[in-house]
Design a protein around this nucleic acid. Structure first.
Length: 472
RNA sequence: CGGGGCGUAGCUCAGCUUGGUUAGAGUGCCUGGUUUGGGACCAGGAGGCCGAAGGUUCGAAUCCUUUCGCCCCGACCA
């Protein structure tokens, strides 16, 4: 009997949160660092989660009238130059393509064929999409134009962290053009609300929607709205953004149209996005000292069935029972789709297998062994409960109850996250209160989180602030 | 880009201060058997130009120089 660790992840959250995070990502087999600095390899379990996020958000985008399209990875540098604030904002983190060929020199491949105009690998696509919109929009009848793209982008980050901040990441960027500022602002707010809903209802993460101060605005935007989530080190993380761009980009890209009165007008545009950072946010919001806990609604596999095979001659009958159960479970619906089930038939020790799934955070584990075959029962374990809290219940009952169990886990995760946030949040209403809060509680090392442009103190930022309560 | 830490087996690390047989452990991996409802056991096996390049030396994982990379904190960011 090897010594048993108390927790699957070391260090535990309380001792070293950043290190805990990295260990969890590794233990859950979600992603790894690649040989290219700042870039990650997203492994099947991590990508499966992204596919769920992508698929479910995509439905919400389509329901609100958006259509997907795809724009080029490479952007002419001159495009970025068109919007002054925008250039400034992204200039320091752009990867630049300057050559289109390699030549062999002294056994090394060296760049050759210099481009007359360099390209930037998109850090975001406002400019190149703006150029396309300028071609597509002629009349007010062409508006609104509601486009989304699922893509990778690249921002040369100083300090990458898996999922949270990588040089290359996956995201969606919505870009829309409207006839009036009111319509564009409505769109901006609508998508902001969709993000809030998606995190709450799908990722089980409560967020605080708000508006960024001037210093934190997207480069080139008039207003930037974000959703802010609190994770378990009590820090806030920006989980999604929606921007009202005014006419800044339409003037830069010349997106104009003939209006109802026959006058040429510039369109009003928006952009909005969420990225693979959502995965990191989810891990930090729900994970525990045994690994990830994935909310059932977005889990790539919602139920894993673990065959228990003590004697070789039982293999066939146990596996048959597992496959039958999987089939029965798949006939159940939850959130409008069949329950996602996997049978883990790998010939591994029961404990090892069990712990792998605990670390991955699959919401429900179902064990089936010879004793169950006799009794017609199964052992059901929830990831949000104790690992040995097994419910031995009748087969049919387990099948019938599964949708409710998944819903219950989903609700529990949201409740937990909400309670945690409430416990560690306070609202302040003046600069005085604000400074009192931080300086009083951190006299030795005053800590200030977030953007602190209080001005005279009369105008409060519209974003509520998450105040990190004093440790201990 | 500033401050700190670290590069030795797939992974986690010991060895380095005080150079000296064939470079070690745990875990993982492979084979065979016993196992399997809390991370199992026995036996055998594969796997390393000690991050890279120079230098000092009879001799370098160990000392010196340079370089590349990784991690943490800060600034910046989805």
């Amino acid at each position: 009997m090897a010594k048993q660790q108390q927790n699957a992840i070391s260090p535990v959250r309380e001792n070293n949160f950043p290190e805990w995070y990295q260990q969890v990502v590794k233990a859950a087999d979600m992603a790894e660092n690649s040989e290219v600095r700042g870039c990650m390899v997203i492994k099947p379990w991590g990508y499966g989660l992204w596919e769920q996020i992508q698929g479910q958000l995509d439905v919400m985008f389509k329901e609100t009238g958006h259509k997907n399209a795809y724009f080029p990875l490479l952007i002419p540098v001159s495009y970025l130059e068109k919007e002054a604030t925008h250039v400034e904002g992204f200039a320091t983190e752009c990867a630049v393509v300057t050559h289109h060929r390699l030549e062999l020199k002294d056994g090394k491949m060296v760049p050759a064929g210099e481009l007359s105009e360099p390209y930037v690998i998109r850090p975001t696509s406002e400019t190149i999409i703006g150029a396309a919109f300028a071609r597509w929009v002629q009349s007010y009848r062409d508006l609104p134009l509601l486009i989304n793209q699922w893509a990778n982008v690249m921002r040369w980050e100083m300090r990458p962290r898996l999922f949270l901040r990588t040089a290359e990441f996956l995201w969606q960027e919505g870009h829309t053009a409207h006839e009036t500022p009111e319509e564009a602002m409505e769109e901006t707010r609508k998508m902001h609300a969709i993000y809030e809903e998606f995190l709450r209802e799908h990722l089980a993460i409560p967020v605080i929607p708000g508006e960024k101060t001037e210093g934190e605005r997207f480069p080139g935007a008039l207003n930037t709205f974000t959703i802010e989530a609190m994770v378990q080190d009590r820090k806030a993380i920006q989980a999604g953004t929606s921007h009202f761009l005014g006419q800044n980009f339409s003037k830069a890209a010349n997106i104009d149209f003939e209006g109802r009165e026959g006058k040429r007008e510039f369109a009003w545009t928006t952009s909005w996005g969420v990225s693979t950072r959502l995965i990191g946010t989810l891990i930090m919001a729900h994970g525990d000292d045994d690994g990830v806990i994935i909310p059932p609604r977005v889990a790539p596999t919602q139920v894993v069935i673990l065959p228990i095979i003590p004697k070789e001659e039982m293999r066939e009958s146990v596996l048959a029972a597992c496959q039958q159960l999987a089939k029965d479970l798949r006939s159940q619906q939850v959130w409008g789709a069949p329950v996602r089930v996997e049978v883990d038939e790998r010939d591994l020790g029961g404990g090892v297998k069990n712990w792998e799934w605990i670390k991955k955070g699959v919401p429900v584990r179902v064990e089936i062994g010879p004793r169950d075959l006799e009794k017609g029962s199964v052992a059901v374990t929830r990831r949000d409960g104790g690992h040995r809290d097994k419910a031995f219940i009748a087969n049919e009952e387990a099948v019938a109850q599964m949708p409710d169990t998944l819903l219950s886990i989903q609700n529990n995760l949201l409740d937990r996250a909400l309670a945690f946030r409430e416990e560690h949040t306070c609202e302040v209403h003046s600069a005085e209160e604000f400074h009192a809060f931080f300086t009083a509680q951190n006299t030795d090392q005053p800590e200030i989180h977030g953007d602190l442009h209080w001005g005279t103190g009369a105008d409060l930022p519209r974003t509520k602030m998450l105040c990190r309560k004093k440790a201990k």
